[in-house]
């Protein structure tokens, strides 16, 4: 069964890169431009994993994760946070909110796939 991954990022180029990399590896990809957009698109959809940026307008990654974990359907899905090295404390905050793991930007396609493989069964 094809698994669907949602990429949430306000940067179109990051979304495009994530999308391209995951599709090539055989995943379906849903794009969202910020946390709010992500939550809207999650409702009623069947998403297996979320990769979200931290800093976004409207709703940032942390808040989005908190909201996702509150949805019964997505209580246990893997959520990966995209952060940069200067946000070490954000990593902890993200974990506290319910993130499964993180990827440090900048990253290469193979690193992204490595993490997806690590958390998505």
């Amino acid at each position: 069964m094809t698994q669907t991954i949602m990429t949430v990022d306000d940067s179109a180029s990051v979304r495009q890169m994530v999308n391209f990399t995951l599709k090539k590896a055989g995943y379906e990809v849903v794009e969202a431009v910020d946390g709010k957009d992500g939550l809207t698109k999650l409702a009623g959809a069947k998403i297996n994993m979320i990769i979200t940026d931290l800093n976004m307008p409207n709703m940032d990654g942390i808040e989005m994760i908190r909201n996702v974990r509150a949805m019964a359907q997505y209580k246990f899905i893997p959520i990966i946070l995209l952060t940069t090295e200067s946000q070490d404390d954000k990593k902890k905050e993200g974990k506290k909110a319910g993130a499964t793991g993180w990827i440090i930007k900048p990253f290469k396609p193979e690193q992204l796939l490595g993490v997806v493989k690590k958390v998505l069964k």
Binding site: D10, S13, P57, K105, P106
Partner: peptide, 24 residues
């Protein structure tokens, strides 16, 4: 302020990913 930060953040993050290391 948040907007400026995010703009820099995105340019840095994406720049590194697409080989614009000097910019990042």
């Amino acid at each position: 302020i948040g907007r400026v930060f995010r703009a820099m953040h995105t340019i840095k993050g994406s720049g590194g990913m697409f080989g614009f290391d000097a910019i990042a």
